[in-house]
Amino acid sequence: MAIPKAERLMNLALCLMNARRPLSKRELRASIEAYASLDGGPGGADEAAFNRMFERDKEDLRELGLVIETGESPLDGETGYLAKRASNRLPELALAAEEAAALALAARVWQQARLAGAASGALQKLRAAGAFGNNGGAAEGSPAREEEGRATVLEPRIPAHEPSFDKLMLAARERRPVTFAYRRSGAPEPGTRTVEPWALECWHGHWYLAGFDRDREDARVFKLSRIVGQVRTRSGGFTAEVPAHVDVREHVARFAGEGATATARVRLRRGVGWPLRTKALAEKSAEGEWDEVELPYGHGLAADLAEFGADVLVLGPEELRAEVLAHLRAAAGVKGAETA
């Protein structure tokens, strides 16, 4: 039975870290079961397979942060490898209370995601190292432990219930484009989007993805709750440059109209449209059953207004009125009608 790669990497790391001198590839092959199980003598086909496997494993360990040094093996004079403990020992962790809280909150994001076990294990290791203060080693029933319990009775949580969360997170990390069906606000049917995902962020209780929309050739944000069906990864890499800093909230706010310098004047039927009224810059009564409201105007306002149908009337600007009418016609399945 083949030995899992994770076990093979762990055995190689332990062997290199416990060595007192550089070990040659010949010695490592004889010491590690996964390598020794490759039959064949030196110079044979299995020797080449071992060399390829060892080089991949060595690079994987280095990517994981293990510092591997080279030197001459005194046993056979060949190039040897060694991972000194001093070079691979983490410095003492000293997190401020705010840093520890932020780290714990970030780990709780994974409570509904696939890395819940890894996040929990990471927190346990940090607590054992004293990263969360001196209470980590306090005995049960001690004042320190009781104080810790009181401090965590009320704690913020960031759920990740959206089915697409895991796949989008991995695609963003691995820089792989994705395709998914996305239902825009006011659209009768979802449309297919091909996106190069940059980053995910939770904002106002909802998860958003920021990335490069290949079809529109521009940056876009997507609300995960509006993704329909499966997210599928595509072959190939990114075609657009990823910004050095991706501020998902800035993108969401821009597309939601927050921070906009332009304003719009709309009439709302009295007693409806409370989500819009909370953003109002000014509000006054108008004739009949209408109120006149002044709102910040930015990308996304047309979709918000269209959701209220006949209970909203756009007074200006004219381009916003045209956008709202386009949303309403799309929802009704009307095509090619003249703008009212």
Rank of each mutant, 00 (worst) to 15 (best):
V266W: 06
A131N: 07
L126Q: 05
G141H: 07
P163S: 02
V242M: 09
A332R: 13
L295R: 06
E7A: 15
A138G: 12
F222R: 03
E338C: 07
A302T: 06
L168W: 02
E63C: 10
H206G: 01
A96S: 15
S120M: 03
D46H: 11
E155R: 11
I68W: 09
R157K: 08
G229Q: 02
R56V: 13
R329M: 08
A128L: 11
P159Y: 02
T263L: 12
R226Y: 01
A256E: 15
P74W: 12
A86D: 14
A94Y: 04
G186S: 09
A49L: 14
T70I: 09
L301K: 04
A122G: 05
I158A: 08
R193H: 08
A96V: 01
E98W: 07
Y297T: 00
F222Q: 00
E258L: 12
E98L: 05
W207I: 03
D76S: 09
D311F: 07
E27N: 05
A96G: 15
L305T: 02
V324Y: 01
A129L: 15
L61C: 08
R329V: 04
A94K: 12
A102W: 03
A139H: 08
A118R: 14
K5N: 14
T263G: 03
G44H: 11
E189I: 04
G41L: 12
A139V: 07
E155F: 13
G191T: 11
M1C: 07
A101T: 05
A129T: 04
R85I: 06
K335I: 12
G298R: 06
L328C: 11
F308N: 00
P190Y: 02
A113I: 02
A101V: 00
A160Q: 01
L170Q: 10
F238Y: 15
P296S: 10
G229A: 04
I227L: 03
R173H: 13
P188G: 01
K58V: 11
A240V: 07
R321S: 13
A94S: 13
K279M: 11
R52Y: 08
L16C: 08
D76C: 10
G65F: 08
K125D: 10
R226W: 02
G149I: 15
A332C: 05
D247Q: 04
